[in-house]
C-alpha cells in the first residue's frame, strides 16, 4: 500500500471498517512511513479529544428525575 492508498483507508481503519484484506498492508505501511504514521496519530488523538469532550456531558439530575417521574405516570 502506498501513501495515497493509506490516506484513503485511514478513516475506515480508524472506524474499524477497513476490509480485512487491506488491514495488514495498511498497518505495515504505517510502520514504514513516518508521515502517514503522524497523520494516523493526529486523527487518533483528535478522536480521543472529541470523545473526552462530548462524553463529559451528563444529563442534569433534576431533568433525569423529572423525566422518570413522567415515564412512571406521575406529575413532572
Amino acid at each position: 500500500m502506498d501513501c495515497s492508498q493509506t490516506h484513503r483507508n485511514l478513516y475506515p481503519y480508524l472506524d474499524r471498517q477497513i476490509e480485512p484484506a487491506k488491514k495488514k498492508s495498511f498497518e505495515s505501511h504505517l510502520g514504514e512511513c513516518p508521515d502517514c504514521y503522524g497523520c494516523y496519530r493526529f486523527h487518533f488523538h483528535l478522536r480521543d479529544c472529541l470523545k473526552k469532550i462530548y462524553r463529559h456531558f451528563e444529563l442534569p439530575p433534576s431533568v433525569l428525575r423529572c423525566l422518570f417521574k413522567r415515564v412512571a405516570g406521575g406529575p413532572p
Binding site: 513516518p34 504514521y37 496519530r41 488523538h45 473526552k52
Partner: peptide
C-alpha cells in the same frame, strides 16, 4: 508525530 500525545492535542 512522536511528541503529539493526547495532552498536546488538548
Amino acid at each position: 508525530p512522536e511528541s503529539l500525545h493526547e495532552q498536546d492535542m488538548e
